[in-house]
Amino acid sequence: MVDCIECGGELSLYDDIEAGEILDCSTCGAELEVLEVDPVEVDKAPELQQDWGE
């Protein structure tokens, strides 16, 4: 388990979680990226940016 950095709600984690995965908080809907797996550390997921074909 890890706490959401936005709302403090608890997030359930899979046993085989990997760094770089994106988790959705079921309480507030925040998207969080797994930075470390032992111990589990999460941060706000980066926003996807449009490239507009450039």
Results as ranks from 00 to 15, higher is better:
residue 5 I to N: 13
residue 25 C to V: 11
residue 33 E to Q: 04
residue 32 L to K: 05
residue 30 A to W: 03
residue 35 L to Y: 03
residue 35 L to I: 15
residue 5 I to F: 07
residue 53 G to W: 06
residue 23 L to G: 08
residue 21 E to V: 02
residue 53 G to T: 10
residue 14 Y to L: 11
residue 30 A to F: 02
residue 29 G to P: 10
residue 37 V to R: 08
residue 39 P to Q: 03
residue 1 M to V: 13
residue 51 D to F: 11
residue 13 L to V: 08
residue 43 D to Y: 10
residue 30 A to K: 10
residue 17 I to C: 07
residue 16 D to G: 10
residue 40 V to F: 10
residue 23 L to Y: 03
residue 37 V to M: 11
residue 43 D to A: 14
residue 17 I to A: 08
residue 2 V to S: 13
residue 18 E to N: 09
residue 10 E to L: 15
residue 48 L to M: 12
residue 43 D to V: 06
residue 25 C to T: 12
residue 12 S to Y: 10
residue 53 G to H: 03
residue 44 K to L: 12
residue 18 E to T: 09
residue 5 I to V: 13
residue 45 A to E: 00
residue 18 E to D: 09
residue 3 D to C: 03
residue 43 D to F: 06
residue 4 C to Y: 05
residue 32 L to F: 06
residue 30 A to D: 02
residue 32 L to D: 03
residue 47 E to F: 04
residue 21 E to W: 00
residue 49 Q to E: 10
residue 47 E to K: 00
residue 14 Y to F: 12
residue 24 D to V: 00
residue 20 G to N: 08
residue 38 D to W: 04
residue 54 E to I: 14
residue 17 I to K: 01
residue 25 C to Y: 14
residue 8 G to Q: 01
residue 17 I to D: 04
residue 11 L to I: 15
residue 49 Q to S: 11
residue 48 L to K: 08
residue 33 E to T: 05
residue 2 V to Q: 03
residue 8 G to H: 01
residue 27 T to D: 01
residue 5 I to T: 07
residue 32 L to V: 08
residue 2 V to Y: 11
residue 46 P to R: 15
residue 15 D to Y: 10
residue 49 Q to N: 11
residue 10 E to I: 13
residue 37 V to T: 12
residue 33 E to K: 00
residue 47 E to Y: 00
residue 12 S to R: 12
residue 5 I to R: 11
residue 27 T to C: 06
residue 34 V to H: 01
residue 6 E to M: 14
residue 11 L to E: 08
residue 11 L to N: 04
residue 43 D to P: 06
residue 31 E to N: 15
residue 33 E to D: 05
residue 3 D to T: 10
residue 13 L to S: 09
residue 32 L to R: 07
residue 42 V to F: 03
residue 38 D to Q: 01
residue 16 D to K: 06
residue 2 V to R: 05
residue 47 E to V: 07
residue 21 E to I: 01
residue 12 S to Q: 13
residue 47 E to R: 00
residue 44 K to F: 07
residue 5 I to S: 05
residue 50 Q to M: 03
residue 48 L to Q: 15
residue 12 S to G: 01
residue 31 E to I: 04
residue 3 D to E: 15
residue 47 E to W: 00
residue 36 E to I: 03
residue 16 D to H: 14
residue 28 C to E: 08
residue 50 Q to E: 09
residue 4 C to S: 15
residue 3 D to L: 15
residue 43 D to S: 07
residue 4 C to V: 10
residue 7 C to E: 11
residue 44 K to Y: 08
residue 4 C to P: 03
residue 38 D to P: 00
residue 17 I to F: 00
residue 23 L to V: 13
residue 4 C to A: 14
residue 43 D to H: 08
residue 33 E to L: 06
residue 49 Q to Y: 07
residue 7 C to F: 14
residue 14 Y to G: 12
residue 40 V to T: 14
residue 21 E to K: 01
residue 23 L to E: 05
residue 6 E to Q: 14
residue 11 L to R: 05
residue 13 L to A: 07
residue 21 E to D: 11
residue 53 G to V: 15
residue 28 C to R: 13
residue 47 E to D: 02
